[in-house]
Design a protein around this nucleic acid. Sequence first.
DNA 1: TCTGGGGTCCTAGGACCC
DNA 2: TCTGGGGTCCTAGGACCC
Length: 420
Amino acid sequence: MFGIVDCNNFYASCERVFNPKLENKPVVILSNNDGCIIARSNEAKALGIPMGAPVFKFNDILIANKVNVFSSNYALYGDMSERVMTTIASFVGDIEIYSIDECFLDFTGYQYLKLPAFASELKTNVKKHTGIPISIGIAPTKTLAKVANRASKKSSELNGVCILDNTTKIENILKTFPIEDVWGIGRKYAIFLKSNNINTAYELTQANNYWIKQHLKTVGLRTVQELRGIPCNDLELEPNDKKTVCTARSFGKSLTNFVTVAEALANYASVCTEKIRKQKSATNCVTVFLKTNRYRASEPQYYQIKSMELNVATNNTPKIIECSHELLKNIWKQGYNYSKCGIILSNLIPENNVQQSLFDNGDTVSNKITMNLLDIINKRHGKNTLKLATQGFKQEWKAKQDNLSKKYTTDWKEILKINI
DNA sequence: TCTGGGGTCCTAGGACCC
DNA sequence: TCTGGGGTCCTAGGACCC
């Protein structure tokens, strides 16, 4: 049996842990730049606020209902996620961390009769240790565990735990399970399946394998097999190294000035390169893109992307920034209102596996020591304590974060104070 | 005025080889 | 006039996930 643990309304729950007044009140969390609503408490969902909605379209509803609005605080959510995962791992051993708020569990070797009690205990303990409420779904495959998890949230009598341990239970739940909610069926496939009279997960399990393979490809066929109770996906215990890494942000306001955009890009490049150093990779290819705001249809639009192959793979921040600026010069066109740029590092290889070149020495020992020091200092004293001069100080490009809560768990200066 | 960010996997088709 | 069979590698684009 597989289990999946999902934190309920994770970002909203993180805010509530340190601000109990938010309990039972509507809470929403915004995307980068305070643009879209990307997380909602149950109370906010009940107000009809959809996932991913642009904030400005829902301002009236937010104000009228005194909704508590937060900018996203990834320092907080990332740390809370780690705490939740550590707590779960201390109960079940091997877990697969699937996303910031979800993990899969493997119940091989467990006595299935004891699963309900075990799941309830896990739920109680995570809440006690971290303050975060979770829901648990357990079933013979990962896809069915996802189905169970969703069911556990929909029905209040299940109390956050749903176990699908026999075919009758599975069949009954699949018969009422909307096709678009199946893990692995996205918008396009849902439309296609509905146009072929397949509206529930159960109806999908009845379809012909050849037909499924033809239209939903190999991945889709695996999904269907898993719905039928045949496991096709195992737990992935070791997180794989990333094959590409991207850092891209919308600017806080539209920019027309090359120097400002270059400064932003230097910062994104710095973040991105730090990410690949963290997984001990070096990159062979740098890509930069630049774009205008597509929602402003009246303004002239521009989008350009360009890549550069490197002679010798590197994870040296100054070198990557240099490449990114060269690419930016290449694609820059004066006279547009730019809204976003980004950098992608690809063809990643292990840093101790870098092929040297006759004509380029690659990263020197002192390059490596410098980057190592940079990472150590910034880890100990906070990010950007030490940075490259090209990263600038004015930061006119900085994203909006008007409603940011504190970094309660990762910064001594912002630690929660309690007056007694 | 204001519209997120970061990934993976698979496939078809084109280019090439003998 | 007739025009094979078998393979690899790469890339762009499309689907999906959170």
